[in-house]
Design a protein around this nucleic acid. Structure first.
Lengths: 255, 255
DNA sequence: CGACACTTTGAAGACGATCAACGCCGGTGG
DNA sequence: CCACCGGCGTTGATCGTCTTCAAAGTGTCG
């Protein structure tokens, strides 16, 4: 167990460029802790105490509006960090809820401790800057998509990103969490998601049950890119294509 | 002219906490430059050379999709910085266009130089982190609003923020740029914006021509907050209320 | 004055949300 | 073992909102 966690923490983007000894020291500052399905890590308004890394399981980050709407801002799986965006904010309270949606294992780091560490390790600050910067551009892009893309296009985009980010096989992989959650993540209703999924079958992407397969990437890109401002330098499509290639060569090697 | 620019740069959030001497040194690294209405600072895909600060005028940041849609991500006025989000990204090219929409005066800083400076001035890195972090949370909130709010509610939210950010008088101020631009910034059509504006008259906010006045903040907040997840700890409403108060006391003092 | 950009209004259409009903499964309890 | 239930996903019908298209009003500037 400790092994798994340590391995995951070692490979955090936040820790890139640090020596193994430094990583060791940092990991010493963290604490492992299990959460059962349904346990809250924290709620909106709670004081910020920790920075978290998901080692196993899944955590949903979400907010609620007074009129009862629930909006999930993110779903974190193994290897994802929670709180990067908050630790350096002025506000001392959480701005969203975090709940374990599977039995999960997390690594917790005290924020006070982490802040100090950042002040002394310039490389950490730079890593964090790069991460926030990247996250920003992704957020901007998603906001744009929400304005310019149809539900089906947004969904295709989302599945592509999921496939690459979590290193799934484009020819066929299982959704890591429920469609209800995906709908909420994308800011649409379950019914809309369901209908969007069937539309995508005409555009080279099939989803049956939990199984997703990219059948015709060219066709899908044509469908999605017409509404995407960064179609030109969008590295997702390229990555996807590469991945398909890699898998094909692996197959050939096996044969 | 140099005075104006220097004064604005001195008060950049990025430079908070630096001594005046340090600021002087940093300002030496920058260069002032005028842009005429319609001049591009850079285009999507151009290599990233500079970090900019608007000293006078206005700059529109926007993207275009292959199918002809234009989406403005931001409009920068005096005191705003351009490029904070990009300087620490891996990508070496701009991911959006920037065009002067009035005759403007900008301060330009070489990115290479700025990166070095950040590496050596820990305080700059921390300031930048705070800014990105804050920008992130604003972006997340806006994305959420796009999913949960009507056009009129989003607009009200936007005008509130504008009023506070640029230190306008809530009882009456002029829009700093065109409604077309606002519509584009909010990801809606001109017609939708126009209709949203009339709707807002029933909710305590009147706009006639370029003139905006908050007539009944209570009513407006009630209208907006029902769909806002951070209604509780949203400091915008509070700030607006304070500002109204301040202006009232000023008025009394004058009388 | 006329050209032009910006704004507003009306009418029609598209898209997603909402409401309602049903099928499917996994779990619980009799 | 089966009946029942609840969560999840799908499908159809309807409704509201935003977009689209068309037209006309407003303002500014040469």
């Amino acid at each position: 167990m400790q092994m798994i966690a340590s391995h995951i923490v070692r490979n955090l983007p936040l820790f890139i460029g640090l020596s193994e000894q430094e990583k060791d020291r940092l990991i010493q500052g963290g604490q492992q802790r299990p959460y059962a399905n349904g346990d809250y890590l924290f709620r909106h308004g709670d004081p910020i105490h920790n920075f978290y890394v998901v080692c196993e399981g899944a955590v949903q980050l979400f907010r609620e509006t007074p009129d009862g709407h629930e909006m999930t801002t993110d779903v974190c799986l193994a290897g994802d960090a929670i709180g990067e965006t908050e630790i350096l904010q002025l506000s001392s309270t959480h701005r969203f809820n975090a709940i374990a949606i599977k039995d999960s294992l997390l690594m917790e780091f005290s924020v006070a401790w982490l802040k100090d560490t950042i002040k002394n390790h310039n490389i950490l600050a730079l890593n964090l800057l790069g991460m926030l910067s990247h996250r920003n551009s992704v957020a901007a892009l998603e906001a744009e998509h929400k304005a310019t893309m149809s539900a089906a296009q947004q969904l295709a985009c989302f599945l592509e990103r999921m496939c690459i980010l979590h290193d799934f096989d484009p020819r066929g992989f299982d959704l890591p969490y429920s469609k209800t959650l995906i709908a909420s993540r994308l800011g649409m209703e379950n019914e809309t998601l369901s209908r969007a999924l069937s539309k995508l079958r005409d555009h080279g992407l099939s989803v049956q049950g939990n199984r997703v397969s990219f059948n015709d990437i060219e066709k899908m890109e044509a469908y999605v890119c017409s509404s995407c401002s960064i179609a030109g330098d969008c590295n997702e499509h390229e990555a996807l294509r590469q991945r398909l290639l890699v898998n094909k060569t692996k197959e050939i090697r096996r044969a």
